[in-house]
């Protein structure tokens, strides 16, 4: 299935958008449906509860790797994240072989840098995303991405206080809520343009929309996100 999706991306077929992002939209629609106001079904409650506990657990597992070199915890993180990391790379247009290799390298880096993980600063997903992102830049451009603040190889020059850390956790929760508020169309263009690094023209082709519509949708999506996040 995944292989098929990737072929579609590479050959630029028309159903690129629906095939590749169907799953993504589905997740968002489900997430939206599971929001409190939308009439909770039992399964929706279970799903949203799962989503919450999952996030907590993976943070704890990374902490266990740091503290005890816990390989069981590592294997559990691997089972959840490695296929998503590979899928994330492939959605960005990377060939399956390289995506496999880099997903493995990302997981290796999770193990090696576990001691730098601070659960008060970021969720497991966010932290692992930054590792995957940096490795993707290293691999594609053969240069080191000057972004390491979650790795703490560089300390920011301003001191972060405990209340800042609390703010950061709240802020991450706010992002989750904000992104659930975006329409799936808006989410999709943010995804394609920023995280998959697709130029406007390619997004227009993939979604079968005029170029101007893509640009204005992206602008409105960012405006909407900005409003939802609020000015700091």
């Amino acid at each position: 299935m995944i292989r098929l999706r990737c072929i579609c991306v590479q050959s630029g077929m028309d159903d690129f958008g629906t095939l590749t992002f169907g799953n993504f939209n589905g997740r968002w629609l489900r997430a939206r449906r599971s929001m409190p106001k939308a009439g909770k079904t039992k399964s929706a409650i279970r799903r949203s509860f799962q989503a919450m506990t999952e996030a907590v657990n993976y943070s704890a597992k990374i902490t266990r790797i740091a503290a005890h070199g816990d390989k069981v915890a590592f294997a559990e993180i691997f089972a959840y994240f490695a296929p998503r990391i590979k899928g994330f790379f492939m959605r960005g247009g990377m060939a399956p072989g390289q995506a496999e290799e880099l997903a493995q390298e990302t997981m290796l880096t999770v193990w090696r840098k576990a001691q730098l993980f601070d659960s008060t600063k970021a969720s497991a997903s966010t932290w692992i995303f930054t590792i995957a992102r940096n490795l993707r830049v290293d691999a594609i451009r053969r240069e080191r991405y000057p972004a390491a603040h979650l790795m703490e190889e560089h300390e920011p020059e301003f001191e972060s206080s405990p209340s800042d850390d609390l703010l950061r956790v709240e802020s991450e929760e706010r992002v989750r809520r904000a992104m659930r508020e975006l329409s799936s169309d808006q989410m999709n263009v943010i995804q394609l343009h920023y995280f998959d690094d697709k130029p406007h023209s390619e997004i227009a082709r993939a979604l079968d929309l005029p170029l101007g519509t893509v640009k204005s949708r992206l602008r409105l999506a960012m405006q909407h996100l900005r409003n939802l996040l609020g000015e700091e």
Partner: peptide, 27 residues
């Protein structure tokens, strides 16, 4: 950091692409 958290969410929502069967062992 907020936008990186958005990246974390896109990772959670990424399509699942199974790795080679020996991937975990190799790592």
């Amino acid at each position: 950091h907020q936008f990186e958290a958005a990246g974390g969410i896109t990772l959670d929502d990424a399509p699942v692409a199974e790795l080679m069967s020996d991937a975990l062992e190799k790592v």
